[in-house]
């Protein structure tokens, strides 16, 4: 059995968070992950506060276990969503894509554990100074908005820099990833792509099918020119975006316009031509739909075996 300080801190059975995926991780998926013993996370994405409130209330109906809400700080609705989170008090709030210090005190005062996703030591240290209970060090192997550093390099450096529990994210899709993360100093993991194909995940079936068929070389990072790099699968949309990105006759406004709404088109409509199918590099090893419980128990059974075997290399 694997049990770490993050389990005690949050009252969860397995030290795993389901990564927040805008338009995808809703109350149903989050509750399923929490009921399976992990920490499910509702993605607020760019949604208005009332919709996020509905999702939090629904999750509370579906599980009595702790769950989280991710506030995407680049969203124009972030301020209102932050207030709703403070009012409805999920156990955890995770944050990404910006500086959460304006909201941190409000959440902490409400008794919510704030656990930011951090792409660098500076962001991690500042977050801990502002009251973060743990941090999620996310490498650029992950899907969606990504940083430059890899998980392998980022996690140990963050572990050295802060005195709170560190979760590793980016490129973790099975028990080998969990075991590796622990060797780097993490005491938990966050996985998004693997949960995209959970039976309880309501994303369009075309999205799931794409993940299951994906090879290791099938993702690409676009949006660097705009300062908001995003990892997604190499679909016709992603190839077109990449082509436009290197075309100096295309303005940044035109690029922004091209990208707007493309994740929704993939997640909700399953549009293979015009959708942005965000996914991590680890998608290549995700081969079947399973329940959230099957995913978590399989990942941790494998991790446990690997960690037990690790001693064989020490003579």
């Amino acid at each position: 059995m694997i049990h770490t300080p993050i389990c005690d801190l949050l009252g969860i059975q397995y030290p795993i968070f389901q990564g927040a995926m805008a338009w995808i991780s809703d109350a149903k998926l989050a509750a399923a992950v929490s009921n399976a013993g992990g920490l499910g996370v509702i993605a607020a994405g760019g949604a208005p506060a009332d919709l996020v409130a509905d999702q939090i209330k629904r999750a509370k109906d579906l599980t009595d276990k702790p769950f989280g809400v991710n506030v995407m700080l680049m969203s124009p609705n972030a301020g209102e969503v932050a207030k709703v989170v403070a009012e409805l008090k999920p156990a955890v709030v995770t944050t990404g894509a910006g500086n959460a210090s304006a909201f941190a005190k409000m959440w902490i005062d409400a008794g919510i554990d704030w656990i930011p996703v951090v792409p660098s030591i500076a962001v991690a240290v500042k977050s801990v100074r502002n009251g973060a209970r743990a941090v999620i060090a996310e490498g650029g192997e992950s899907g969606g908005h990504v940083g430059e550093l890899t998980t392998m390099c980022l996690v140990p450096q963050i572990c050295d820099a802060v005195n709170v529990p560190v979760l590793a994210a980016g490129g973790i899709g099975d028990g080998r990833g969990i075991a590796a993360a622990f060797m780097l100093g993490a005491v938990g993991v966050q996985a998004g792509t693997r949960f995209l194909v959970a039976r309880e995940c309501g994303v369009h079936q075309n999205y799931k099918n794409k993940i299951i068929k994906t090879k290791e070389i099938d993702s690409v990072v676009t949006g660097k020119r705009l300062g908001h790099p995003v990892r997604s699968l190499k679909t016709p949309f992603a190839r077109k975006f990449l082509q436009y990105e290197y075309d100096s006759s295309i303005t940044n406004e035109q690029l922004e316009e091209l990208g707007a709404g493309s994740l929704r088109v993939a997640a909700v409509e399953g549009d293979n031509e015009n959708g942005s199918f965000m996914a991590g590099q680890i998608a290549g090893l995700v081969k079947k739909e399973q329940s959230a419980l099957e995913i978590i128990t399989e990942m941790f059974a494998e991790a446990e075996k690997i960690l037990h075997r690790a001693e064989q290399w020490v003579k």
Partner: peptide, 11 residues
């Protein structure tokens, strides 16, 4: 400076 540089610089 990109956004990560700025956070680092601020520290």
């Amino acid at each position: 400076l990109d956004s990560l540089d700025i956070m680092d610089l601020v520290m």
